[in-house]
Each structure stands twice: as C-alpha cells, then as structure tokens.
Design a binder for these strands. Structure first.
Lengths: 184, 184
DNA sequence: CTGACAATCACGGCGCGTAAACGTTT
DNA sequence: TAAACGTTTACGCGCCGTGATTGTCA
C-alpha cells in the first residue's frame, strides 16, 4: 500500500504526475474514494511499472491506456505503429541534419561533431582493408537484399538525396563488369 | 510587391502564418501601416525564402530572427548548435526504438519494417564476401579512429547498450590475436 | 498543536501556428 | 458585390508543473 507521494518517489515521478494519471484514468488507486486519501496496492504499482516502461518508448498516455485496459492483442500492433512512427521522425531529423550540413559545408567544423559522413565511413573501410571493389559489391548486395535499408543507411551517412538516388539505381542495375559511377 | 495571401501562396504557407511572422517581428512587410494592406517587397520575399530555408533545419523562429537580424557571424554557431541538438534528439528516438525492439523480440514481425539490425547487417556483409575476421578488424579500426561514431553506428543497428559496451571495450583493447568476444 | 501530507480546481507554458469573428479595403 | 484584406482573440497539441485553498493524518 502506497500513498501518492510514496509511490511517486518510488518511481521517480512527481506527485502531480500521479494525480494527472488518476485524472485521465490511466492509473486509478484501487482504494480511496472521493475526498479520501488514495491508496495504491501492489497491483497498482505493477501497473505503474508497466506504464513507465511504455513511456520510455514514447507512446502516448492514451495508447498506454489502451494497451493496459484491453486484452493483450493490442500490444504488438501499437508498438509496431510506434516503431514506424519513430522511423519517420528520425528520417525527418536526419533530413534536417543533411540540410544543415549542406549549409555548413564551407565551415569544416562540423566534422568534429558526431555526425557520420561518407568521408569518415570510407576511410574506415579502407583502414580495415576493404578495397573499392569490395565497397561497390557491397552496395549491390545491400540494394538487392534490402533496398529500403540501403536507402536508410545512405541517409545515415548524410549523403545528398540525389547522389543516393544515383548510387541506388546504379546498384540496382549493376551486372558484373558494369562501369562504376563517378562519385565525388 | 505582394499582398499577404499572394506571398503565402507563393511559398506554400498560410496567410495566418505570415500574419504570425509579422506579429513576432520575423517578417514585417516594408509597406503598409496599421489598417492598411500589407505590401511585401521583393526583398521581403527574399527574406522569407531565407526563413523557409532555415525552418527546414528545425531552427526556432527566434533563432532565425537572430540570424537574419544580425551580422552573419551568428549563422555558423547557431547551426552547429542545432546540429548537436539534432544528434541528441535522434539518439533519444533510437533509444526508444531499441526498447520497442526489445519488447517485440518475440514477435518477429518487426523485421519487415525498415529498422536496421545486426542480423541484416551481418548477412549483408557476408553476402558481399566479408569474413568474420574482416568484421572484427573493422570494429577495431572504427573504435580507434572514431569512437563516438562507432557508438552511433552500433546504435543505428539497434544493438542493446550493454552489448555495445562490450563490443567497444573489446575493440578498444584488441591486440593482434586477441580472443574475440562471444556475440549472440 | 504542528507540520507534513492529502484533496480539488484551475491556470500556465512550450512552439507554431490555426480558426473564428467581425469590420474594412479594392 | 465579392474577395481579399485588416485586427483581435482564443484555441490546439502533449504532458505535466505550479500554485491556491482547504482538509486530514501522525
């Protein structure tokens, strides 16, 4: 049995957060009617633990409520939806990064920040003994095996969208002996 | 010379957005007093183009204002700051993805979504003719040459933080002939 | 009695607009 | 007359945080 404050402390939340969860029906104390003190049982605490877990995935409180209040069939689809949503969000942010990198390309300073780029990547591969040919073969395999992920990875390297397009379409059509595209 | 609506249409914005920009002093029409129609000059339009450009980087309107209203010395630092901020945001979102992947690991369905993971990655490398040894050497080079980026990349693969730690510390200390860590 | 808790209610606040309502210019 | 404009005000999102005021427990 916990009071609001105690439960809040136990989970590193603020009291008002729990009050808020009560208000929206996400976590109602199993004892304590109107005007009385709230009393949270161990079961309530367990539910709160679940809530915190799901919150770490960025799910909205409403979705968490849906998950916890309905048979577990909803869990997987909701999480997958969130995963997809996160992909889109990340893609959007990377897009913003690419634009900034474009604007900053005179100022060489951005190299020192943790943004991955092609120069770093290729120099790493070279340092590990990978030849240019290896790299081209790798692009081809990547494009064939998982085109979307290939795309995502190229974006991860902050390569401009048009170059990505060129690289991918080359990789998609490459036959043994195909001429390699010129890359800056 | 443009009126609000025309300028808005030209830039794919809504009228209210321009009104808002006027209110906060971000873009004031060079002609048009109170009660009169706003008239935006070509210079204003140019400024708006700048604004839109910077907005695509996710800069706050206040920061854009600062950039445009002061000598260009502020541009670079502001952009770099935003870049760093984006890194943090992306890292946070990836963290959320990793948690979801952990929760979903029984449901194999997430493989079909565009999330990169180690399995895909290694199978790709293998398909391109890279041996296990190549991969281990590559980790070592990566860790030595750009530790932070190595970290970022492993996160990109949705590898749990503790395994990342293990892998990195192994790579950091590896000598030729060092035993390789067991990886699931 | 006192001090630490509890209760309820309502408002604030971020960032960037959007929408409504109603009057004026062209 | 109609369309586009003007101003002002309020609202929306998501997730709480912060009081104010008053009641209760140890």
């Amino acid at each position: 049995m916990y009071t609001v404050g105690r439960l809040a402390k136990k989970f590193g939340l603020s009291r008002s957060t729990l009050l808020y969860y009560d208000r929206i029906g996400l976590l109602k104390p199993s004892q304590g009617g109107k005007g009385e003190y709230r009393h949270y049982s161990d079961k309530d605490a367990e539910r709160l633990a679940q809530i915190c877990q799901y919150r770490r995935t960025g799910l909205k409180l409403q979705d968490i409520k849906r998950i916890l209040d309905s048979p577990d069939t909803t869990l997987t689809p909701v999480l997958e939806e969130r995963l997809e949503e996160l992909n889109l969000e990340i893609e959007g942010l990377r897009e913003q990064q690419r634009i900034i990198v474009g604007l900053l390309k005179n100022s060489r300073l951005f190299e020192s920040i943790g943004v991955m780029n092609r120069a770093t990547w290729t120099s790493l591969l070279a340092a590990s003994g990978f030849s240019d040919d290896d790299m081209w073969r790798w692009h081809v395999a990547f494009e064939r095996h998982a085109p979307e992920k290939h795309h995502a990875f190229l974006r991860f390297l902050c390569i401009p969208e048009d170059e990505i397009e060129a690289l991918r379409s080359w990789a998609a059509n490459a036959e043994p002996g195909t001429e390699k595209p010129a890359m800056p």
